[in-house]
Amino acid sequence: MLRKYSNYRSFSDNLKLGALTAFSAGMVNVISVIVFFAFTSNVTGHYAILAQEIAKGNWYQGAIVLIWIFLFFAGNFTSNCLIIHNNTPTGRYMAHAIPVFLEMACLMFVGIYLQYFYTESLKETEFLVAALLFAMGLQNGLTASISNSKVKTTHLTGLTTDLGVVFSMFTKKEFRNDKKLIQKTQLLLGIMFSYMGGGIVSGLLYYRVGNATFIVIGLVLGVVLLYDYSKLQVTRFVQRRRSSFQRRYSLYDKKA
Protein backbone atom coordinates (compact mmCIF):
# COMPACT_ATOMS: atom_id res chain seq x y z
CA MET A 1 0.00 0.00 0.00
CA LEU A 2 2.71 2.48 0.99
CA ARG A 3 5.85 1.01 -0.59
CA LYS A 4 5.04 1.71 -4.21
CA TYR A 5 4.83 5.04 -5.92
CA SER A 6 2.95 6.58 -8.83
CA ASN A 7 2.50 4.28 -11.86
CA TYR A 8 4.26 1.35 -10.16
CA ARG A 9 1.20 0.88 -8.01
CA SER A 10 -1.23 -1.87 -8.88
CA PHE A 11 -5.02 -1.68 -8.76
CA SER A 12 -4.95 -3.85 -5.65
CA ASP A 13 -2.50 -1.46 -3.91
CA ASN A 14 -4.79 1.49 -4.59
CA LEU A 15 -7.92 -0.38 -3.57
CA LYS A 16 -6.46 -1.47 -0.22
CA LEU A 17 -5.03 1.98 0.52
CA GLY A 18 -8.20 3.75 -0.60
CA ALA A 19 -10.57 1.52 1.35
CA LEU A 20 -8.65 1.65 4.64
CA THR A 21 -7.87 5.36 4.60
CA ALA A 22 -11.41 6.25 3.46
CA PHE A 23 -12.74 4.16 6.35
CA SER A 24 -10.63 6.17 8.81
CA ALA A 25 -11.61 9.48 7.15
CA GLY A 26 -15.30 8.60 7.45
CA MET A 27 -14.78 7.77 11.12
CA VAL A 28 -12.96 11.05 11.81
CA ASN A 29 -15.55 13.13 10.00
CA VAL A 30 -18.52 11.67 11.84
CA ILE A 31 -16.92 11.81 15.28
CA SER A 32 -15.90 15.44 14.75
CA VAL A 33 -19.45 16.35 13.78
CA ILE A 34 -20.78 14.58 16.88
CA VAL A 35 -18.26 16.09 19.29
CA PHE A 36 -17.38 19.46 17.74
CA PHE A 37 -20.21 20.21 15.29
CA ALA A 38 -17.65 20.73 12.53
CA PHE A 39 -16.67 18.71 9.46
CA THR A 40 -13.01 17.81 9.36
CA SER A 41 -12.43 15.60 6.35
CA ASN A 42 -13.58 18.02 3.69
CA VAL A 43 -13.13 21.73 3.18
CA THR A 44 -15.61 22.54 0.40
CA GLY A 45 -18.25 23.41 2.97
CA HIS A 46 -15.73 25.49 4.91
CA TYR A 47 -15.11 27.67 1.84
CA ALA A 48 -18.86 28.30 1.56
CA ILE A 49 -19.08 29.05 5.29
CA LEU A 50 -16.09 31.39 5.06
CA ALA A 51 -17.81 33.37 2.31
CA GLN A 52 -21.03 33.42 4.32
CA GLU A 53 -19.32 34.63 7.51
CA ILE A 54 -17.47 37.37 5.61
CA ALA A 55 -20.74 38.47 3.99
CA LYS A 56 -22.40 38.61 7.43
CA GLY A 57 -19.47 40.51 8.90
CA ASN A 58 -18.68 37.78 11.44
CA TRP A 59 -14.93 38.34 11.35
CA TYR A 60 -14.06 36.11 14.28
CA GLN A 61 -15.86 33.07 12.80
CA GLY A 62 -14.45 33.90 9.35
CA ALA A 63 -10.90 33.97 10.74
CA ILE A 64 -11.39 30.62 12.45
CA VAL A 65 -12.68 28.98 9.28
CA LEU A 66 -9.80 30.45 7.27
CA ILE A 67 -7.28 29.02 9.74
CA TRP A 68 -9.00 25.62 9.56
CA ILE A 69 -8.73 25.65 5.76
CA PHE A 70 -5.07 26.63 6.09
CA LEU A 71 -4.43 23.69 8.44
CA PHE A 72 -5.89 21.28 5.86
CA PHE A 73 -3.63 22.90 3.26
CA ALA A 74 -0.65 22.61 5.64
CA GLY A 75 -1.34 18.90 6.10
CA ASN A 76 -1.30 18.32 2.34
CA PHE A 77 1.84 20.45 2.00
CA THR A 78 3.70 18.59 4.77
CA SER A 79 2.72 15.20 3.41
CA ASN A 80 3.87 15.88 -0.12
CA CYS A 81 7.06 17.58 1.07
CA LEU A 82 7.99 14.47 3.06
CA ILE A 83 7.32 12.28 0.03
CA ILE A 84 9.13 14.24 -2.67
CA HIS A 85 12.19 15.00 -0.54
CA ASN A 86 12.70 11.37 0.47
CA ASN A 87 11.87 9.66 -2.78
CA THR A 88 14.67 7.10 -2.75
CA PRO A 89 14.07 3.35 -3.15
CA THR A 90 15.43 2.68 0.36
CA GLY A 91 13.64 5.50 2.17
CA ARG A 92 10.37 5.34 0.26
CA TYR A 93 8.45 3.30 2.79
CA MET A 94 9.54 5.60 5.62
CA ALA A 95 8.72 8.71 3.58
CA HIS A 96 5.24 7.36 2.94
CA ALA A 97 4.81 6.08 6.48
CA ILE A 98 5.75 9.33 8.29
CA PRO A 99 2.55 11.20 7.24
CA VAL A 100 0.50 8.25 8.55
CA PHE A 101 2.50 8.34 11.81
CA LEU A 102 1.87 12.08 12.12
CA GLU A 103 -1.82 11.56 11.39
CA MET A 104 -2.02 8.88 14.07
CA ALA A 105 -0.23 11.21 16.51
CA CYS A 106 -2.75 14.01 15.81
CA LEU A 107 -5.70 11.65 16.27
CA MET A 108 -4.30 10.18 19.48
CA PHE A 109 -3.62 13.68 20.80
CA VAL A 110 -7.24 14.68 20.13
CA GLY A 111 -8.56 11.48 21.72
CA ILE A 112 -6.40 11.82 24.86
CA TYR A 113 -7.16 15.53 25.18
CA LEU A 114 -10.89 14.88 24.88
CA GLN A 115 -10.74 12.15 27.49
CA TYR A 116 -8.64 13.88 30.15
CA PHE A 117 -8.47 17.64 29.60
CA TYR A 118 -11.41 18.88 27.52
CA THR A 119 -13.52 21.49 29.29
CA GLU A 120 -15.74 22.11 26.25
CA SER A 121 -14.53 25.68 25.77
CA LEU A 122 -14.73 27.23 22.31
CA LYS A 123 -10.94 27.77 22.13
CA GLU A 124 -10.30 24.07 22.74
CA THR A 125 -12.94 23.08 20.19
CA GLU A 126 -11.37 25.33 17.57
CA PHE A 127 -7.89 23.98 18.29
CA LEU A 128 -8.93 20.32 18.22
CA VAL A 129 -10.88 20.77 14.96
CA ALA A 130 -7.73 22.38 13.51
CA ALA A 131 -5.67 19.33 14.59
CA LEU A 132 -8.16 16.97 12.92
CA LEU A 133 -8.17 19.01 9.72
CA PHE A 134 -4.37 18.91 9.68
CA ALA A 135 -4.50 15.11 10.13
CA MET A 136 -6.97 14.73 7.28
CA GLY A 137 -4.83 16.99 5.11
CA LEU A 138 -1.83 14.75 5.81
CA GLN A 139 -3.82 11.68 4.78
CA ASN A 140 -5.31 13.21 1.66
CA GLY A 141 -1.93 14.58 0.57
CA LEU A 142 -0.32 11.17 1.04
CA THR A 143 -2.92 9.11 -0.81
CA ALA A 144 -3.27 11.58 -3.67
CA SER A 145 0.48 12.02 -4.03
CA ILE A 146 1.57 8.38 -4.06
CA SER A 147 -1.29 7.18 -6.25
CA ASN A 148 -0.98 9.86 -8.94
CA SER A 149 -4.23 11.43 -7.69
CA LYS A 150 -6.15 8.20 -8.31
CA VAL A 151 -6.97 7.79 -4.61
CA LYS A 152 -8.55 10.67 -2.69
CA THR A 153 -10.15 9.54 0.47
CA THR A 154 -11.23 12.44 2.63
CA HIS A 155 -13.90 14.04 0.47
CA LEU A 156 -16.38 12.56 -1.91
CA THR A 157 -17.22 15.46 -4.23
CA GLY A 158 -14.63 14.49 -6.83
CA LEU A 159 -15.39 10.83 -6.32
CA THR A 160 -19.11 11.30 -6.97
CA THR A 161 -18.27 13.34 -10.07
CA ASP A 162 -15.99 10.54 -11.33
CA LEU A 163 -18.65 7.93 -10.60
CA GLY A 164 -21.21 9.92 -12.57
CA VAL A 165 -18.79 10.17 -15.50
CA VAL A 166 -17.84 6.47 -15.37
CA PHE A 167 -21.43 5.26 -15.21
CA SER A 168 -22.35 7.50 -18.12
CA MET A 169 -19.48 5.87 -20.08
CA PHE A 170 -21.06 2.50 -19.40
CA THR A 171 -24.14 3.57 -21.33
CA LYS A 172 -22.01 2.95 -24.44
CA LYS A 173 -21.43 -0.70 -25.20
CA GLU A 174 -17.74 -0.41 -26.10
CA PHE A 175 -16.82 0.84 -22.62
CA ARG A 176 -18.64 -1.86 -20.65
CA ASN A 177 -15.81 -4.36 -20.99
CA ASP A 178 -13.01 -1.83 -20.62
CA LYS A 179 -10.85 -3.28 -17.85
CA LYS A 180 -9.42 0.09 -16.80
CA LEU A 181 -12.86 1.64 -16.45
CA ILE A 182 -14.17 -1.35 -14.50
CA GLN A 183 -11.21 -1.16 -12.10
CA LYS A 184 -11.70 2.59 -11.70
CA THR A 185 -15.36 2.01 -10.84
CA GLN A 186 -14.43 -0.68 -8.33
CA LEU A 187 -11.90 1.63 -6.71
CA LEU A 188 -14.36 4.54 -6.50
CA LEU A 189 -17.13 2.36 -5.13
CA GLY A 190 -14.71 0.78 -2.67
CA ILE A 191 -13.72 4.22 -1.36
CA MET A 192 -17.33 5.38 -1.22
CA PHE A 193 -18.59 2.39 0.74
CA SER A 194 -15.57 2.41 3.07
CA TYR A 195 -16.10 6.09 3.85
CA MET A 196 -19.77 5.46 4.57
CA GLY A 197 -18.94 2.36 6.59
CA GLY A 198 -16.37 4.27 8.64
CA GLY A 199 -18.91 6.97 9.36
CA ILE A 200 -21.56 4.51 10.50
CA VAL A 201 -19.10 2.51 12.64
CA SER A 202 -17.80 5.70 14.22
CA GLY A 203 -21.31 6.93 15.01
CA LEU A 204 -22.23 3.62 16.63
CA LEU A 205 -18.92 3.25 18.46
CA TYR A 206 -18.90 6.75 19.91
CA TYR A 207 -22.11 6.14 21.84
CA ARG A 208 -20.64 2.94 23.30
CA VAL A 209 -16.96 3.61 23.88
CA GLY A 210 -16.79 7.43 23.71
CA ASN A 211 -13.39 8.91 23.03
CA ALA A 212 -11.79 5.47 22.69
CA THR A 213 -13.15 5.63 19.12
CA PHE A 214 -9.97 7.55 18.31
CA ILE A 215 -7.96 4.48 19.31
CA VAL A 216 -9.98 2.40 16.83
CA ILE A 217 -9.19 4.94 14.09
CA GLY A 218 -5.53 4.71 15.07
CA LEU A 219 -5.73 0.91 14.78
CA VAL A 220 -7.12 1.17 11.25
CA LEU A 221 -4.19 3.38 10.30
CA GLY A 222 -1.89 0.95 12.13
CA VAL A 223 -3.05 -1.77 9.73
CA VAL A 224 -1.98 0.46 6.80
CA LEU A 225 1.47 0.89 8.35
CA LEU A 226 2.02 -2.68 9.51
CA TYR A 227 0.75 -4.37 6.35
CA ASP A 228 3.54 -2.86 4.29
CA TYR A 229 6.10 -3.19 7.06
CA SER A 230 5.41 -6.92 7.28
CA LYS A 231 5.63 -7.22 3.49
CA LEU A 232 8.99 -5.42 3.58
CA GLN A 233 10.26 -7.78 6.27
CA VAL A 234 9.18 -10.83 4.25
CA THR A 235 10.85 -9.42 1.12
CA ARG A 236 14.08 -8.76 3.03
CA PHE A 237 14.00 -12.24 4.55
CA VAL A 238 13.55 -13.84 1.11
CA GLN A 239 16.35 -11.69 -0.32
CA ARG A 240 18.70 -12.67 2.52
CA ARG A 241 17.90 -16.37 2.08
CA ARG A 242 18.36 -16.10 -1.65
CA SER A 243 21.73 -14.34 -1.40
CA SER A 244 23.05 -16.81 1.22
CA PHE A 245 21.89 -19.71 -0.96
CA GLN A 246 23.62 -18.16 -4.00
CA ARG A 247 26.83 -17.72 -1.95
CA ARG A 248 26.77 -21.35 -0.86
CA TYR A 249 26.01 -22.53 -4.38
CA SER A 250 28.90 -20.51 -5.84
CA LEU A 251 31.30 -21.96 -3.18
CA TYR A 252 30.14 -25.50 -4.02
CA ASP A 253 30.76 -24.72 -7.71
CA LYS A 254 34.31 -23.55 -6.96
CA LYS A 255 35.09 -26.70 -4.90
CA ALA A 256 33.72 -28.92 -7.64
Binding site: W59, Q61, A63, I64, L66, I67, F70, L122, K123
Partner: peptide, 20 residues
Protein backbone atom coordinates in the same frame (compact mmCIF):
# COMPACT_ATOMS: atom_id res chain seq x y z
CA UNK B 1 -0.59 36.87 0.09
CA UNK B 2 -1.18 33.62 2.01
CA UNK B 3 1.12 34.71 4.85
CA UNK B 4 -0.78 38.00 5.13
CA UNK B 5 -4.11 36.15 5.20
CA UNK B 6 -2.94 33.97 8.06
CA UNK B 7 -1.48 36.90 10.00
CA UNK B 8 -4.72 38.86 9.46
CA UNK B 9 -6.75 35.88 10.70
CA UNK B 10 -4.59 35.60 13.81
CA UNK B 11 -4.94 39.31 14.45
CA UNK B 12 -8.72 39.11 14.02
CA UNK B 13 -8.90 36.26 16.51
CA UNK B 14 -7.02 38.33 19.07
CA UNK B 15 -8.87 41.55 18.32
CA UNK B 16 -12.48 40.39 18.00
CA UNK B 17 -14.53 39.07 20.87
CA UNK B 18 -15.40 35.41 20.56
CA UNK B 19 -19.07 34.33 20.64
CA UNK B 20 -18.25 32.59 23.93
Amino acid sequence: FFALLIVASGWLLLDQESPE
